[in-house]
Amino acid sequence: MSESKTARQLRAERSREALLDAAAAAFVETGVQAPVRDIAKRAGVGVGTVYRHFPTRADLVTAVYRHQVEECVALAEKLIADDVPPTDALCRWTSAFTDFLVTKHGLSDALSSDDPSLNNLHALIFDSLVPAFASLVERAQESGEVSKDVSPVTFLRAIGNLCIVGPGYTEADAKAMVGLLLAGSGATSAPAP
Rank of each mutant, 00 (worst) to 15 (best):
S113D: 03
T98E: 09
A123K: 14
I125D: 07
V165F: 01
F97E: 03
D59Y: 01
S185C: 15
L10D: 14
L129Y: 05
K41I: 07
A24K: 12
I164Q: 12
E17Q: 11
E145M: 01
V178G: 07
L107C: 01
S108R: 10
E13C: 01
K78W: 10
A34E: 03
L182F: 10
P191M: 07
K78P: 00
V178R: 08
S2A: 09
L118C: 06
S147W: 05
K41V: 10
G44M: 08
G31C: 13
A12G: 01
L156H: 09
D149R: 10
F155V: 00
A24T: 05
A43N: 12
S147L: 03
S95G: 15
L129V: 10
A132H: 15
D21W: 00
T62A: 14
A81I: 06
H105Q: 07
G160Q: 09
A58K: 03
D59A: 14
T188H: 09
M177F: 10
S15Q: 15
L20G: 01
G48Q: 11
S117C: 03
R139Q: 14
V102H: 07
A158I: 01
T103L: 02
P55C: 05
K175E: 07
Q33D: 15
A12Q: 13
V73D: 05
L124S: 08
L79Q: 06
V84I: 15
D115P: 00
K78F: 07
V32L: 15
A190E: 10
